[in-house]
Nucleic acid binder design. Sequence first.
DNA 1: CCGATCCATTTTGCATGCATAATTCCGCTG
DNA 2: CAGCGGAATTATGCATGCAAAATGGATCGG
Lengths: 227, 227
Amino acid sequence: MNKILRGSLHDEVVSRLRDMIVEGDLRPGERLNERELCERLGVSRTPLREAFKVLASEGLVMLLPNRGARVTRLTRRDIEDMFHVMGALEALSGELACTRIADDAVAEIRALHYEMLAHYARRNLREYFRLNEQIHRAILGAAENPVLTAMYNSLAGRVRRVRFMANMSSERWDEAVREHERILDALVRRDGAALAVILRAHLEHKCAVVLESDCIDAEETAEAVAG
Amino acid sequence: MNKILRGSLHDEVVSRLRDMIVEGDLRPGERLNERELCERLGVSRTPLREAFKVLASEGLVMLLPNRGARVTRLTRRDIEDMFHVMGALEALSGELACTRIADDAVAEIRALHYEMLAHYARRNLREYFRLNEQIHRAILGAAENPVLTAMYNSLAGRVRRVRFMANMSSERWDEAVREHERILDALVRRDGAALAVILRAHLEHKCAVVLESDCIDAEETAEAVAG
DNA sequence: CCGATCCATTTTGCATGCATAATTCCGCTG
DNA sequence: CAGCGGAATTATGCATGCAAAATGGATCGG
C-alpha cells in the first residue's frame, strides 16, 4: 500500500507502473492483476486501467482482450530492432544539434565529457553511465526537436529494462570512450554528418554489449516457454 | 449517434477518434467534450476517457488537468520536426529493407511503381498518392522491424491531418517521380546507403510541399489566437 | 462603461456497481 | 490415475454515481 499523493492520479500511476516495470518489480510476461495493483498503489481501478492503456500504447505492456495486461517480453530481436531505431534517431539528433547548438551548450557538453572521463579513470561504471546518458540527452536537447525527443525517450524507457552495465568489457569501455572523444570533436566542428555516423556506430556497439549480456534474454525466454 | 459494434470498445473508440481528428471532424484546438462525444459514439465515459489517454500518448490530443482534452494543433515547426524524424525513420527502413528484402518483394514494389506511373501519366493525384503510400509501406514492411513500423505509423497518422495534395506543383510532381525511379533502382541494387539518402531527400521535399500549402497552417494559427 | 466577485451549472476525475468472459477447482468417467 | 466437464469463483469491460474543480453569468463596485 504505497499511496500516491501528488498530481493527477492516472499520470502518477503511469509513472509508478513504468518504474515498477523498469525496476523489475513487475517482471516480463507477468500478468498485471487489477485488484492487486489497485491495493499496492492505493487507487481504484479506473485510473489504473487508464494507465494500462497508455503503457500499452508505449509498448511496455500488452493488453489481451478480456484477459488483462501483461508486461511485454523483450526478445533479442526486439532489442536489436529498438537499437536500430534509436541509432537512426540519435544520428538525426546529432545532425540537428550541429546545426543548432550554441557554443556555451557545446562547452557544457565538454564539461560533462570530462566528468565522464573522471568516472572512467576511477572505473566507476554507474557514474560513468549517468554522465554518458546526460551527454546523449544534452545532444538530444540541442537538436530542439520535441517529436524526436519524445520518440527517443519512449524507446530509451523500453530498453532501460535490460540491465547490462556489469557486462561491459574493459576493451569495449575503452572503445566507447574513444567514440565519445570523436563525438565531442564532431560536435565542436559542427560536423553533423560525421557525428551522425559516430553516434550510430556507438549505438550499434552498445546494442552488441547489451546482447552479449543475454542472461536476461535467456531467462525471459525460459519464462516465455513456461508462461 | 454512430453506434460502434465490433471488438473491444476502447480500441474502437481510439480508432474512431483518430479518424475524426484526421478527417477534420474534430478540429485542431477544439475541446473534446466527454458527454457530447459519448453520445456521438454511443459509449459511456469510461472507454472514451481511456481513449483520450491513448491519443494523448500518441500526441494527437493534449490533456489539460481538470480541463479536458483538446486536439493538438500542428504548427509549421511541428510539421518540420515530424518530417525530420520521419526522414530518419524512412532512411533506416530503406537500409534495413536492402539487407532483408527478397526478390519477389522487390518485384512487387516494381509493380506498384509502374501502377503509380500510370496514375502519374493520367494526372490522377489521389490514386498516385495511394500507390506512393503503398510503396513506402512496402519498403517499411520489408525492413521487418515492428518498432520502426509502429513509430513511423504513429508519425504518419499525425501528419496525415495536413491536407496538401492539391498543392503539389507539376514540377515537384515530376521531381518526385524521378526520385521514385531512383528509389526503385537503389532497392534493386540493394544499395542501402543510397536508398537512405534518396528517401531522406524525398521526405524533405515532401515536407517542403506540405509547408508551401500553409493555408491550413495559417488557419490553425488564427484559431490558436482565437482559442 | 469596464472589470471583479460570487453563485449556479457544467465538466472533469475518481470510485463503485453490474454483467459477461475467463479461470479455477472439484467431481466424474474411462 | 489421467483426462474431461461443469459449477463456483474471480477478473475484466463498461456504465454510472458522487465530489471537486472549472466555466458561465449575473450582480456589484469603481
